[in-house]
Each structure stands twice: as C-alpha cells, then as structure tokens.
Design a protein around this nucleic acid. Structure first.
Lengths: 340, 340
DNA sequence: GTCTGTTGTCAAAGCGCTTTGGAATTTTGA
DNA sequence: TCAAAATTCCAAAGCGCTTTGACAACAGAC
C-alpha cells in the first residue's frame, strides 16, 4: 500500500493525502479525518526511503559507541542511551550506532557523517582538547556534545553538568565537617568530567590552604572492582584520607566494600560523597549506609539531548546552544564529622 | 556531486557509471578505471536514500537493545556488539538500535520491523518459549537469533553455542576429579542459555546418580557483585559444594573474591570452572589462580552473525540456517582433585 | 556481402514521497 | 451583484539512484 494507491482509493490526489498526513493547514478537517481513517484501516505507512529522498532528512541521529578490546562498555553509557531512546521513539527517530575502537573515533565519526545515514551527530566521553571537535565543526551537520572539552574554546553546542561546582560543593561540605585529608576516586584521567571534578576538589581545598597529594588521586574506568582496588590503596597510606570524593556510585560500591573489609565505619571513620548518575539499579539510599551524593540524572540528560538534536533537525528550535545543569547535593549518612 | 553530474563530467551515461561502480561485468575495464578515477577526484558518494529507494534495501540491520530501569547493560552485550560492528563496517552496513524495556521487546521489535529502516532483524537474550519468535516468523523479514529458545520448535535460523554440552563436559571433568557436591552460578533463570547449562550439569550428575540441590543453584544477572554474593551463600551451606560451575568469568570474579575472603584456596578447597566469553578485559589466564574454562568467543559470534545477516540481505548466501558451535574446555589451575 | 553473437553503451522508466505553482470553488466585503 | 480574498485541491516536477530493453559497433562465420 503506497500513497498512490491510498489516494486513488480516497479519490484524492497524492498531494492532498500527503498534506493531510503531515499536518499542513490547507486541508479541510473533514478531508483530513477521512484520510486518517483510511490510514487506520489500510495500515498504510509511508516509505521511509522515499521520504528521505524527497525531504533530504534521514530521521536519525548518529553516534559512535566506544567498544573495543579493553574498553568497558559501562552502565553509564547504557543508562544515557536509554534516555536518548525514550525521546527518539516519541518522534519516530532512530539511532545509527557505529561501534568503534576509542582510538579510532575520529575516523568512525567521519565515516558516520559521510555515510549519509544520519541527520545529526552526537558525541560523548569528551576529552580535554578533544580531536573530534574540529571535525564536527567542519562537517556542516548539526551536532551536540554531552560534556565539554577542557582546553577548547566552548563555541560549540553542548549539554553538560557543572562537574566542577558539584565537586567543589561536596568538598566544601567535607571541609566544614572538619576533614583535612582527602582522597579522590575519579574517572579516566583524559576525560573532561574527570578533569573538572578534580579541579573542583583542588580549588575548594586550595581555599583552605590544603592540597590533594598525587597518591590520593586515582583515575580509572568506573567499575566497582576498580573502586575497591583504589580504595584499598588509599587505606594503606601512612596518612590515610578520611574524606573521599567519588565520581560514581559504581565506584563507591567497591570503595565501600574496601572500607568495610578494613573494619572501618562509613560515615564515622571515613566520609564519602559520590556523584550519583541516578542509575536505577544502584540507589544511594539503599546502600547499607545511605550515601551522600551530588545528583544529576544521566537519563534525563539523554532525553534532553535527543530533544534538542531532533528539534534542530526538524527546525523546531530555537534551543539554547549550551546548557549547564547544576547538580544537587544530597546529604545522607555516609558523611560525618572528621574523626580526631 | 551526484550521479548525473559525474556522468556528464565523464561524457558517459548514468547507467554506465552506475554499473561501473557496482561491479557489473558489461562495462569496459578501461571505462571502469576512468570512472573510479573520477570518483576518487571528486569524492563522489552515492546518495543512500536514493539507493534505498531504488533497490529497496536499507543496508542496515536492526536490533533491540534491552536497556531499562533495573536492567544491567552488561559487558557481554557490548562485546558481542563489537563483533557485529566490525563486520558491518566492512560491508558498509549499519545498525539501527532501538532501546527498549525488556518487558516491551516484542512491541519494540515490531516497531523496528515496520519502521522500514532495516532489512533484517537480530535478536539475542533468548528465553524459553520466547514470544518474539512467533512475531519474527510472521514478519517476512530475514532474521537471525543468537541462542535458541528452549521449548520452541527449532525451525528458525540461529547461531548458538552448545551450552548444554559445555557444562556437561565441565561437570564430567569435575566428577572425574572426585567431586560430589556441586554448585552452579548461573545467568538469569528465564534465559535459554541458563536453562541449557543447568541441564548439562544435571544430566552429567544424573549419570553418576547425583543431583543438584536447589540451594546449590543460583540464578542472577551476571555481575561480579552477584557472583560474590551467591558464592558467599554457597559457602555457608552445611554441606558446602567443592565444585562450582559458573556461567561467566564476570561471575567468577566475584565468586573467587568470596572464596578468598573465606580463607579457602581455589583449586584446592574449591574447584571452579567458568564459561569464558573471551572478554578482552577479563582473561582467565590472568586470574591469580588461572581459571579452567569452557571457551567460546562472543565477539566471533557477533562477526559471524553479521556475516550471515548481511549475506542474506545481499543474497550472497546460502548460509547454513542453523549453527551450533562447540566450546573448548581449557584446563588451568582452578580445578583440582576433590578435598577429602 | 549478409547473418549471428558479443561487447559496451545509452535513454528512459521507475522507486514512493514532497512540494511548487496553479486552478477550481467557496466565502467575504462593498 | 460582482470582484477580491480565502479555502481546498490538483497535476506535475523533482529527489538520485538502479535497471530494463534496445541499439550501435565490431568481430567472426558462412
């Protein structure tokens, strides 16, 4: 069943039927009703390829999925993708995913762009001085980045959370509780959010004349395994930290295991604040000691990004080019006064 | 730059240029060279939408990605996807991914099929009596399943590994080593592979007149967390098992942590065999006690599945409809004679 | 010299949709 | 009442590719 057949059936021209379906105003409401009715009955669905050819819009957004030997396809990515997906489905958009070795992302992104299969691009896992940015800017295709790229002029559309502010505030809270020795369990060193979070901590400490020693910073991909391992190292330091900042509740999971196994009490011997991406299977309030967190929903970010991207493609805009979301600092039981 | 312009530039017809590019035999080699040369210079790329419209092929395969509240987007899925991706890139195919709540997969699959964006469908995470199978069969679109569906007539194209055989063999090995009390750390109960693996164990035990008590079977999603937790429970049983079968090296990671923390020695007090999907970040030979495993590369399965699916779409076939891969049983240090 | 077969090329007909530029028809305003 | 404006619809021209059917051009066979 195609447009031609449908329109013949209705005794209308293809034009009118097409317009009725696409919500153009110049078609009589009664006629539109009749068309919609017929669509229901016949199960007509416009041919996507033809639509694409005629409109030049693919109805899809492309993204490169980092996945390669050694790369942990992590829960955070899945959660974010869910948000994107939720919104995409609503607009009958879809994703084209190009899996790629993280070292080859620029090339993968270019392939995706010139493949002609996507209207817009999305990138995440931003690094400092990210090499994908120049490519994206040169591509004359809408794009949106999740996060930012430290060290690059912020003249591109992004959605980010205030990582620096979040960790600055968290650090301040711990300082107010009397802590002086800090540890930071962070994401991979080259990633933008990790850089900014560290800066937040360092800057809050600096205001009190404190520093964050190198052996109290640990960069790693964010699995609970790594969290445990890194925390164990912290605990063996001669002057072990009493206050821990943690880039993910997943890391915190492991870190807390280490704390418990060392016979220490969370919230008493060790205070910990984790960033909470609102992963549905890992609620900070369900930890044996409920976790103090900085919160910002990764899924909500996914939804918003899909909205903006799809809006741009459909020219529904205008959307703000750049958004910086504040995080919430939620105090629970994992933070307490510094032990003396 | 489009076909028309290119052909005018070359003084050839669109037909000839098109044929030259698509490898038709009826075009002079010299002409073909000339065309290829021009393509190089101009950077001409055929418009995908037009190709799709003309050929009716989208050049893409669709899959539903389970991702929802409570669903762990696990490493196994990422690893498999990488294999699919590797092969897809080679053929200039791409994926269309529809994220979906696992409870809504049938609907998601249907949406994907009728979206007109894909030539073929792929499904994984098969369950017993999987409700997607009837849908797929009714859809008149090529599809391929990874795994099988226990309890459904196997009259659909699949690629699976011999899960039952793998766990049967592994159990036999442990029996030969003198073990009599077994534990099984398995994947989610409703999934096909988990069912078959359990059957393999039960059947090998049955031959010796042994059984697998209910409290020695644990079904869970395959994270190391869960592995640790389940193993801890096993260790507290009055008659604790000495031989453990484990559905993933990820589970094994946690299980071994539990074993170690209980002060037991792997390969002496407890023997363990895990199934190894060849996850690049988790090599069984690098475990503190190298792991005895049944091995089958998930990524290789991805590659093969992409091959078959793409081949089917391009009518390159014929491919065998159904493939059952044997696993390798590789003995390392985590298995030893039963303690007495 | 005609006839059959090959080989290399082309014009033109789709593929199924959107959109442009009117053309009918009805409503409005004076 | 009639011209102008608004409303509703249509025919036809693309979008950029593949593929069908036909046609020159040339070779070798008779």
């Amino acid at each position: 069943m195609n447009l031609k057949q449908l329109s013949e059936m209705l005794g209308l021209s293809q034009t009118t039927v097409s317009r009725a379906l696409n919500g153009y105003p110049e078609v009589n409401e009664a006629t539109r009703e009749r068309v919609l009715q017929a669509v229901q009955e016949t199960g007509y669905r416009p041919n996507k390829a033809a639509q694409r050819l005629a409109t030049g819009k693919a109805g899809s957004i492309g993204l490169v999925m980092p996945t390669a030997p050694g790369h942990y396809s992590d829960v955070h990515f899945g959660e974010f993708l869910t948000g994107l997906g939720e919104e995409a489905v609503r607009h009958d958009f879809h994703f084209v995913i190009m899996p790629s070795d993280p070292d080859d992302e620029v090339a993968a992104l270019r392939r995706l762009a010139i493949s002609g299969n996507v209207d817009a691009l999305f990138v995440a896992y931003m690094r400092g001085h990210d090499p994908r940015l120049p490519l994206l800017k040169s591509l004359s295709m809408p794009f949106l980045v999740h996060g930012r790229s430290f060290g690059t002029e912020p003249d591109y559309p992004y959605l980010d959370i205030d990582n620096e502010g979040a960790f600055y505030d968290a650090t301040r809270l711990l300082l107010q509780l009397g802590h002086t020795r800090f540890g930071l369990l962070n994401g991979p060193e080259h990633l933008d959010f990790a850089i900014r979070r560290r800066n937040g901590v360092v800057s809050a400490l600096g205001e009190r004349g404190l520093t964050l020693p190198d052996d109290c910073i640990s960069h790693m991909s964010m699995t609970d395994e790594h969290g445990q391992f890194a925390m164990e190292r912290f605990l063996q330091l001669p002057e072990r930290p009493t206050a821990i900042l943690c880039s993910s509740t997943v890391l915190a999971l492991g870190a807390i295991r280490a704390v418990t196994q060392a016979g220490l009490k969370l919230g008493e011997d060790i205070s910990l604040i984790a960033h909470d991406d609102v992963l549905p299977h890992l609620k900070p309030e369900n930890f044996s000691v409920p976790l103090t967190t900085t919160r910002s929903s990764l899924r909500a970010a996914g939804v918003r990004i899909a909205q903006r991207l799809i809006g741009t493609v459909k020219q529904d805009g205008p959307f703000p080019e750049q958004e910086l979301w504040k995080t919430e600092l939620i105090v629970r039981a994992s933070t307490g006064a510094a032990p003396r």
